[in-house]
Design a protein around this nucleic acid. Structure first.
Lengths: 237, 237
DNA sequence: GAGTGGTCTAGACCACAAG
DNA sequence: TTGTGGTCTAGACCACTCA
């Protein structure tokens, strides 16, 4: 299905990134954009809604859509490398090592965690992440094998989500997460370069498909000096 | 302005909370809801979009809107009290103590942080939060006095945001946040019950009004054993 | 008063799920 | 084939900002 509003959204993102619309300035009015893209105002509004949700603009009634530059607000003091940079962007060396990959036959606790009613086998996957020569993240995953079959060491060493979304063509819908701080475990010490630290930042997630199926539980353990979480929050309207 | 879609949203939230629509079941179709509320389908869709954004339902094409119960997915191991419970809900005793409240005359670094071009005075506010008899959170705020005038010890001991949004009738638009872990400072030790901990979870935020004005910078320092952040994330469409 | 975004309507056609 | 949600239209009226 063709999504005109998505095309317009991507077009406007590009224009903002390239500086054709600058921070503090206003976008053309919705009426004007409607003419420019030869479409209805409601379709333009869908595109602008996406821009606002993703922090590119702020809509102000009576004035217009103001272009933002959230990147310019950098936090003082902490000169650490960002988590997003570490995991997604930039040319940092990330090496993944698979420590465990096997199927559990409906272990009681984990089966209950993932879904009370399902008796399918469950993958247990343990990986460490080495960034710039230091092993600082430990990822422990439990994944329903009936939904994500065919996992191999090679797949897990590259991007698991790339495999799930592109090869298996599953669509992830939503996730529930928590972030807490806990004491270092023996496993952390064995698989990571914990060094002098005695606490770890722990991110736990339940991950659901678009059709509401719960298929994965993840525990991601980060050495605290290498952890950073950045968030952009806005009221939902 | 009357917002029909907001009324419908609140009505449906109440029905879900009361169990009239149960988790796993489907809401009535958009067409059906349109008849029921005597409104157009697009207006119903706005209400359902809000429900989805806030984790009440998941829309599935061809099937319908499925009611979720994210509350039932509770994280194992960590039996700690949640941050949200601590700060927002429940009958826990929270006592706020104001340690500092005064105006800075355009201090260079802070002025630059809050806004390069503004020479208005800036409030410096330092508060500790005592929860169930332990002082575990230290909040340090810098607030533009021209936007938030009239701060008193009493206002800051109660809810600052209640004052800003209800008394001053300012509307907060969005915020940029980061979460990191840093070592305990001398100030933490003096104002909080740090005990044996040597690290703190630090949440820093830039807070903006609806008209894109940056008016506040906040540093909130939490004792790690009392910190918990819960998040519900979904793809924006 | 002119221009902006916010809400709302009454349709239309399309893609997907399930019987 | 029927029913569902997803996209899109061409209007309308309202609330707000600013000259």
């Amino acid at each position: 299905m063709k999504k005109k509003y998505l095309d317009i959204y991507h077009e406007l993102v590009m224009e903002i990134r390239e500086g054709n619309f600058k921070a503090g300035e206003r976008l053309p009015s919705e009426h004007e954009l409607g003419s420019r893209y030869d479409t209805s105002r409601e379709t333009i509004r869908k595109a602008l809604h996406l821009l606002a949700q993703n922090g590119y603009i702020q809509k102000v009634r009576g004035k217009g859509s103001i272009v933002l530059d959230l990147g310019k607000y950098e936090f003082p003091v902490s000169g650490l490398t960002s988590f997003k940079e570490l995991t997604h962007h930039s040319g940092q060396t990330i090496r993944t090592k698979v420590h465990e990959l096997y199927q559990l036959e409906s272990d009681g606790k984990i089966a209950e965690l993932l879904d009370n009613t399902n008796n399918a086998p469950i993958w247990r996957l343990v990986r460490s992440r080495e960034i710039d020569g230091e092993k600082v993240i430990l990822d422990k995953d439990y994944i329903r094998e009936d939904i994500v079959p065919g996992l191999t060491k090679e797949v897990c060493e590259n991007s698991l989500y790339e495999y799930i979304e592109n090869k298996l063509e599953l669509v992830i819908g939503y996730a529930k997460k928590e972030i807490v701080v806990e004491t270092v475990t023996q496993e952390d010490r064995e698989l990571l370069d914990v060094e002098e630290h005695d606490q770890m930042v722990v991110i736990r997630s339940f991950v659901f498909l678009e059709d509401t199926t719960l298929f994965q539980f993840t525990e991601s353990r980060h050495r605290p000096d290498k952890f950073r979480f950045v968030d952009f929050a806005r009221r939902s309207k």
